[in-house]
Design a protein around this nucleic acid. Structure first.
Length: 584
RNA sequence: GCCGCUGUGGCUAAGGGGUAUAGCGACGCCUUGGUAAGGCGUAGGUCGUGGGUCCAAUUCCCAUCAGCGGCUCCA
């Protein structure tokens, strides 16, 4: 597709969808200004799967307005306006925008480099400050839909005014648009909050907003993950510990958490003393390090802990299991010498990759640097950041830099996973910390017999077991692999005549350690199969008179609807036991 | 926390100023049935919570709590 660039040239564009969507956002802004004169424009970019435009409109938009705006947009597309571009000198551009009352646009121009030409795009009566490129005519926006209205702060700063953002999407064809909308509908069915309820995995109640309850089936899944976690950590020479959930405020003052994190901390009073519910596990781990003196020969010391932390997250940020107020971190604190940093971090990156690959997750990596609210010297931060960058290079990992998003005590490498509709969630993280060891004055004895300061690495793989389970649920759409399936086999009797045989088979499965459920209800086999399908159980055993008379065989139906035919019961048991122990 | 929307039996929804409907599910009876829903019947809600307006509110208004979509923030 050809596009109009801000230098006035027309050429083949690199990203057709982006051009269509960006033009769609202009068409939306034009419709808004036609229907609601006086509405001010902020910004309106194309995004991953659509576009949005931020407006400042007196009284905001009502949901019905989306229909009216869509209708007006269709008109504008039908008018097939030609897009034109022109530039203005800085002062003239500011004057022009000011005369139109576009205060936000004036601010945008004022922030552009002094000597940059200020480009505008025009379609019919509508003119917008814009760097382009755009479609040549508005008819390029033939397949679009407005999706939602949301609040958004001007320039993403919560101290600024909240504007109204209208989200929409656009495609090159109606078919592509419909396919996208259908995909969104399908994704809703995989939402972990819905599946969590339907499959009886977890529940979040009004009595504890953000504090999830794990139901029996969810607990089986969680424990399977934890067993896997424990095995890995034994293999990798970690030492498991457990530290208290509530510790004295003085500890949190010493660690710096009170200064930098108190808004997120819950407190309680014990015998007139203030105690804090731990929002992180590091101070606890450090205290265990200090119990004994350590030699350089012991390092690296890798402590690990399934730590249940509580954080007061703001109410509007809670989201199913993905964002909660109490969660289990598969935490680890590793004490190393400066020379060991690169090898240790490289090892962790590989371990994280091993775990994510096991589930077939795609992930992307970010390097988060020093935030404004932080502690420690510039030199420490530089050394720590360099250490992480070196490890990333050694591993050959691609990453993006997330400026100012590090922890208050150190920079971090973050691993992000995607949910069913493409939102990403930070799960794994590796943080390099020079501060805690100083604050707690921990040391090891070196070859010279002198005390030296170890460096501390904080890291998680799942991140939070809760969030990881949320991602797992959506990734598998509830059809978990056998080893984490809450129920692995459902035993279904065809009629009352085979209740006994079904019970016998069930007992044998159970004795073999297989998680099974027996359905000996007085229902037809089709009904029992339907229910087992909805529960997304990997294997169903259909047991009727044929199987019962033989006494050693079972008929296996798989979750995907295929009929695996008859097998000897012993062979079936061996197969499931193997799948479970191989974790597939 | 901020902006907008939502809140009816376990779930999904309908309704609407004069104490509320359906389907699924649950339970009971009949049916003994071979790979995604056999039939009949029964129970279950006072409409998130608290105020207010009104002869009367679940239905209107206010507040509050929770959820949803975003923003900000974060594992």
């Amino acid at each position: 597709m050809k596009a109009l660039y801000s230098d006035g040239t027309v050429k083949e564009c690199e990203d057709e969808l982006k051009v269509i969507r960006h033009t769609a956002s202009h068409v939306l802004a034009q419709a808004v200004q036609r229907l609601y004169p006086g509405t001010k424009l902020a910004i309106g970019p194309a995004i991953d799967d659509g576009f949005y435009y931020d407006f400042d409109k007196e009284g905001g938009f009502a949901p019905e307005d989306l229909d009216k705006l869509e209708a007006e947009m269709k008109k504008i597309v039908k008018e097939n306006l030609k897009l034109e571009t022109f530039t203005k000198p800085r002062e003239e551009a500011i004057e022009f925008l000011r005369s139109k009352g576009e205060d936000y646009k004036v601010q945008l121009v004022e922030d552009l480099p002094e000597d940059a030409p200020i480009s505008f795009y025009k379609q019919g009566e509508f003119v917008d400050l814009c760097a382009g490129p755009h479609a040549l005519y508005t008819k390029a926006v033939k397949a679009f839909k407005l999706l939602s209205i949301a609040g958004a702060y001007w320039r993403g700063n919560e101290k600024n005014k909240m504007l109204q953002r209208i989200y929409g999407t656009a495609f090159a064809s109606k078919e592509a648009l419909d396919a996208h909308l259908t995909m969104l509908e399908e994704a809703k069915k995989r939402d972990h909050r819905r599946l969590g309820r339907e499959l009886g995995l977890f529940a979040i109640m009004e009595e504890g907003p953000g504090f999830p309850f794990f139901l029996p089936k969810g607990m089986v899944l969680k424990n399977a993950l934890i067993d896997y976690w424990r095995g890995l950590h034994i293999r990798e020479d970690y030492l498991e510990i457990s530290t208290p959930m509530i510790l004295s405020q003085s500890l949190w003052l010493q660690s710096g958490h009170w200064d930098h994190y108190k808004d997120n901390m819950y407190t309680t009073t014990i015998d007139d003393e203030t105690y804090c519910v731990k929002p992180m596990n590091c101070p606890g781990s450090i205290l265990t390090y200090r119990v004994h003196t350590h030699s350089y020969k012991e390092l690296p010391i890798r402590t690990c802990e399934l730590g249940l932390v509580h954080r007061h997250e703001r109410s509007g940020t809670l989201h199913g299991l993905m964002r909660v107020r109490c969660f289990t971190q598969d935490d680890s604190h590793i004490y190393v010498t400066p020379e060991q940093i690169t090898d240790e971090i490289t090892g962790i990156v590989r371990l994280i990759d091993e775990v994510y690959s096991k589930f077939g997750f795609k992930y992307h990596v970010e390097l988060s640097t020093r935030p404004e609210d932080s502690m420690g010297s510039d030199e420490d931060w530089e050394r720590a950041t360099d250490g992480l960058v070196t490890a990333l290079k050694v591993c050959g990992l691609e990453y993006v830099v997330n400026e100012g998003d590090g922890a208050f005590y150190g920079p971090k490498i973050d691993f992000h996973l995607e949910d069913s509709i493409g939102r990403t969630w930070q799960c794994g993280t590796i943080q390099l910390d020079f501060q805690m060891p100083q604050r707690f004055d921990i040391s090891y004895v070196g070859t010279d017999g002198e005390k030296h300061r170890p460096i501390m690495i904080h890291r998680v793989i799942f991140g939070s077991v809760e969030r990881f389970i949320g991602i797992l649920i959506e990734h598998y759409a509830g059809k978990f692999p056998v080893w984490i399936s809450p129920v692995q086999v459902k035993v279904l009797s065809v009629s009352e005549k085979t209740f006994d045989y079904a019970s016998k088979v069930a007992a044998k499965l159970k004795a073999a350690g297989i998680r099974m459920e027996l359905d000996n209800r007085d229902e037809k086999i089709g009904y029992k199969i339907r229910e087992a399908q909805l529960e997304k159980v990997p294997y169903m055993l259909v047991l009727g008179e044929k199987e019962s008379e033989d006494g050693t065989i079972v008929t296996v139906r798989c979750r995907d609807g295929t009929d695996a035919g008859q097998m000897r019961l012993d062979d079936f048991i061996a197969k499931v036991v193997k799948e479970n122990s191989d974790r597939v």
